[in-house]
Structure formats: C-alpha cells, structure tokens
C-alpha cells in the first residue's frame, strides 16, 4: 500500500497523490466520517439525560460540568490507549476509538444540553406547566425544540473536534485519514515527502466543513420559527 507511483514530493502534488490512491483514500475518508459522527450522536443521547438532570437539580450543574470538563483534558492519545484495558478489550479493537470519542462528546455536550435547556424563557416553561405538560412531555414538546439552536452550536464544536481527534487515532494504527499522516512521516526518510500529509489535512478540513454544513442545514430545518421576523 505504500507503493509509490507518483514521484513529485511537492506539497501541491497532493491531488495527484489522491488520484493515484483513490480507493484507499476514499475508504479512509468514509471510516473517518463515521468515526466522527457516530460518537457525537451517542454522546448526545447520553448527554441529554445528564444535562436535563443538572438543569432540573441545580446543585448537580457545577459538579457535572467540572467532571465532564476534566474528562476533556485527558490527552486523546492516552484515552485511546487506555480504553481497551479499562474495558477489558483487546488493543486495536474497532470500538476503542468510538468509545473514547463518545467520552469527549459527552464531556462537551452535557454542558451544552444544560445551557440549551436554560435558554428556554421562564414564562414559556411556566405556561407549559400551567396548561398541563408533565415533566417528560414538556421536555420533548417544548424545551428541547426551543433548545435546538444552542444544542446545535455545541454539536458543531463536538463534530469538528472529533474530526481532528479521529486523525490522531490513525497514528496508532486505526484505519482512517490519520493514516495519511503516518504514511507521510514514514515516506519522509531520507527526504521530506509531503503529498499524503497535505492530502490528509485537505480531506479532514473538507470533511469538517461538510459535516458542519449538514448540522447547520438540519438546524434550519428544525427551527423555521427562528427565521420568522416581525412583520411590522
């Protein structure tokens, strides 16, 4: 897989490099995309009840935000390596990276969910309660829809940062765009060989832009009311 059909080592040759190794690069891109998105979705599902709890019981908010915030300070490479022994998995298990990234997503999103729910105007919550919305029903019918803009902003941060962290997992041998950086490093002896490294950066940035755009689009679809402007 490291056979070299292209010869130029100019950084600008990344596109030629891509054309030469298209199927391999696209398969890495595809895995990279899944590894970036799935942990955010699972992370959101876990963060929703935790965020709701820390909003519902105010005293939970400071410890919840501190603990999840601390999780975020664990270096990603350490977490990737630690997950298998902690969970009794073999190392280089395919779920070790999604699990680690889910931890990061939860860390980021608990606060986002709690703040999103806090963004619902007080009188709206009171009116909802007063006309007979019970706790869970109120959460799904009133609070979450109104919290969508705040939560979506957090999802964008989580998704984009996942794209970059997945690449780090590539350098410990997981199959994704991060492999391009490892490859570039390996091919750079004795002289520097940039195309795979530049290609990795370009594809990561493109992936991040596309995923970000998708979230923006989804948010727009979910919040037609935000575009409603006073008509007078």
């Amino acid at each position: 897989m490291t056979s070299m059909t292209s010869t130029s080592s100019s950084p600008w040759h990344f596109f030629g490099y891509f054309l030469d190794h298209r199927s391999q690069d696209l398969s890495w891109l595809w895995t990279h995309a899944w590894l970036s998105v799935v942990p955010v979705i699972i992370g959101l599902l876990i963060a929703l009840p935790l965020g709701w709890l820390s909003r519902r019981y105010g005293w939970l908010y400071p410890p919840m935000v501190s603990i999840t915030g601390l999780l975020y300070t664990i270096p990603s490479i350490a977490l990737f390596v630690l997950v298998p022994p902690l969970l009794g998995l073999s190392s280089l298990n395919p779920v070790q990276v999604p699990i680690a990234l889910t931890v990061y997503s939860v860390a980021l999103l608990v606060r986002v969910v709690a703040d999103g729910l806090a963004s619902v105007p007080d009188e709206v919550n009171q009116a909802a309660t007063a006309i007979g919305y019970g706790g869970v029903r109120r959460l799904f019918a009133v609070e979450l829809p109104i919290a969508v803009p705040v939560i979506a902003a957090g999802l964008r941060v989580a998704t984009v940062s996942n794209v970059s962290m997945v690449a780090i997992a590539g350098t410990i041998g997981m199959s994704n765009l991060g492999q391009l950086f490892q490859l570039g490093k390996d091919l750079s002896t004795p002289t520097a060989y940039y195309p795979p490294i530049v290609l990795g950066i370009v594809l990561c940035v493109l992936l991040a832009l596309v995923l970000d755009g998708l979230i923006i689009l989804l948010t727009r679809v979910l919040t037609p009311w935000r575009r409603a402007v006073p008509s007078r």
Partner: peptide
C-alpha cells in the same frame, strides 16, 4: 397535577407562547 391543569385555562403576564409553534398550534396545544 397535569390532568388537573388541562382542565383549567391559564393566562400569564407575557403570554408565554411557545416560540417554536405557529399561532394556530399554540392555541391547539391543550
């Protein structure tokens, strides 16, 4: 409580309308 409240109309100071629902759906809530 929730059942009790569905049988009692309630109006508050700033209306407390649901910003994400159209007027017609706000009214149709209960």
């Amino acid at each position: 409580p929730a059942r009790l409240r569905r049988g009692i109309g309630y109006v508050i100071q700033h209306a407390g309308l649901f910003p994400h629902r159209t007027i017609i759906d706000n009214i149709a809530s209960v």
